[in-house]
Design a protein around this nucleic acid. Structure first.
Lengths: 144, 144
DNA sequence: CCTTGACCTCAAGTTGGCTTGAAGTGGCAG
DNA sequence: CTGCCACTTCAAGCCAACTTGAGGTCAAGG
């Protein structure tokens, strides 16, 4: 078992020691004893940290991420959840595209007040109709 | 000027009154006087709220969003900035796509332990290389 | 042996984005 | 005129995810 002490993990991963200690405290990662005072981590922690970073950027909370690693530290996520998250990312991409298009429109549209430009309003309204409908769907399934 | 009172705005937009007051406090939206005690908002605030929601879902902070509206409440951003922002959104979309594909892989890959699945490791490493590089670029430009 | 510096613990502070609670007010229906 | 209710203010609280600070410890190098 190839061990690294916390400073080395921090250096290699870019995650500050304070954060590593915090992650250990909440059970997201674990250390293998100490050398003197210093926590020792298995090199595998680096991959786990990448996963954590990835998960965070996908919008998972740390608690949710912790839940994705089984007792044994393996990844254990129900397939349905993964697909659901992938779908959510898909929707987020759609939002981004709308926003990007709206921005490009604003950049290129000669109308003085964008809030009054018909095609801009159309873009934004189309977007908000989508989100309101999605919200309603979520509520409905939450209640049911 | 078609005015709505706060309760009506809340009903129509789905944004709670407390949040509307909060948004006004931080200068994100503004009201046009009162009727009795009640804030009156121009109907246009609904469009603005859609924009705000859109911006939030694209990962902008409220402060950043506020910065996108000029002093006069109009969208007032230099064209170059708008295009830069649109490009940033484009990059963010690419990241999301990578992540989405990684999630779908995990959902469909039959390997018992994803941490040991070579193609998973490859995906995660590729993704993290991308993010670390992006981080370095950000730091570099921040410093410069 | 003594200093140095990277670590340690624990508590408290910070930021963002709100929500909640207590106490007060304005206008309209009965 | 009374009462109600939707609003008002202001302060405080809350959650996540950390960071910061004070004061302590250990092992290695000079």
């Amino acid at each position: 078992m190839n061990l690294l002490d916390i400073g080395e993990v921090a250096r290699r991963s870019g995650v500050p020691p304070s954060t590593l200690r915090y992650y250990e405290e909440i059970g997201l990662i674990s250390s293998y004893g100490r050398r003197g005072l210093r926590r020792q981590f298995d090199v595998d922690v680096l991959l786990k940290l990448s996963l954590i970073d990835l998960g965070k950027s996908a919008g998972f909370s740390l608690t949710a991420i912790a839940g994705m690693f089984g007792r044994d530290g393996q990844l254990a996520i129900p397939r349905a959840d993964l697909h659901a998250k992938a779908d959510a990312l898909q929707r987020q991409m759609v939002d981004l595209r709308i926003l990007r298009d709206a921005l490009r429109h604003v950049a290129d549209c000669p109308t003085a007040s964008h809030l009054e430009c018909p095609s801009f309003r159309k873009l934004v309204k189309a977007a908000s109709r989508g989100r309101v409908a999605a919200g309603r769907r979520r509520e409905a399934t939450d209640e049911g």
